[in-house]
Design a protein around this nucleic acid. Sequence first.
DNA 1: AGGGCAAGCGGACTGTCAGTCCGGTTATGG
DNA 2: CCATAACCGGACTGACAGTCCGCTTGCCCT
Lengths: 195, 195
Amino acid sequence: MSEQRRERADAVRNRRAILHAAETLLAAHGFEHVSLDKVAAAAGVGKGTVFRRFGDRNGLIRALLEERAEALGEAVVSGPAPLGPSAPPGVRLAAFLDALADLAARNVAMLAAHDRACAEDRLNDPTYVRWHRHVTTLIGEARPDLDAEFYGHSLLALFDAALVKRITAGGGAACLSASVCELADAILRSPRRSV
Amino acid sequence: MSEQRRERADAVRNRRAILHAAETLLAAHGFEHVSLDKVAAAAGVGKGTVFRRFGDRNGLIRALLEERAEALGEAVVSGPAPLGPSAPPGVRLAAFLDALADLAARNVAMLAAHDRACAEDRLNDPTYVRWHRHVTTLIGEARPDLDAEFYGHSLLALFDAALVKRITAGGGAACLSASVCELADAILRSPRRSV
DNA sequence: AGGGCAAGCGGACTGTCAGTCCGGTTATGG
DNA sequence: CCATAACCGGACTGACAGTCCGCTTGCCCT
């Protein structure tokens, strides 16, 4: 990272201000009603600055979710059990889905925005790809006879913002987590198929 | 229906022209790049006409999917087995998912547009609600011990446009249908829980 | 047949927004 | 303290959703 001149202090400050403003506005008014003009104004910067840093509207939203998902990503690749690689796949899967449920429940507004922003190509969004690869790998380890790719998508589809909103409204993150894990369990315990 | 003066002939003609134009353009260019100006022009009508008939952009898309889903809806409530009410729930569920897979595969572009158009409140879209009620009922009949509502959402989530596109690209509607039915099977055969 | 009229039509108009561009500003390394 | 490259901001453009209202036309009644 020290390859190139380090990022200017004001640039860092502005990036943070923009992300923070975007998150606040998103939570308050929803994706549809947040224009980048407003984000820029709320962050106290010019519109050009927002576009230069994040490319476009969708880039901003993606950056938002990525930042929020970073900690989880690290816990998964190098953290302790049950998330980390030292636990058995079934346990890791449950732990991961649980963590995801928590993340989703605490950031519904952002998740909704992300769904909209990446709708064009949801399945190739970097964050989605990372999560999917992880889930797919775990399923494959636990049950090599199953179509892990497909079941990976099935499980992640449960974290659709609208669904998360509805489920957590009636029972909080715990309810979401329980339901998701129940489905994962049903998949991992489904009748064996010939390989 | 004869309560009020019947719909004027030109109105009918225009409605059809608009729906047809919208579908064509959607398939050709994708939701993002189809403006209602263009739809109106392609249908050979004025912009005002489009808005009067369908309320707004989303209304048009919703109407499009509803029209396409009508036949399935009727087959389900009053048709013959395996879709209709004379078959046992497990069979009806498989048949319904199969029909849905077919519908989805043959109308991906429209489905994608619908996903976008209803993103604000996907779970309350009339078509979604109808499908969900049906699936939920069937699951509830087959397995009263399960959270049918939740599993209903899980199954319908598989018909997300992006996922449908990817799966059918690599194996057609049959592959999608098989995968979905496999998941349904895993759910219906999951270990009993105390009621 | 044809007159009256509500239903229907269409396109000009408005307000908003994503994204571009470039002249001015400022942090940073020497 | 200077040179400079990175950064900033907001005016500008083009496109689009949705509104509005004067004009047209199919339909019903006599």
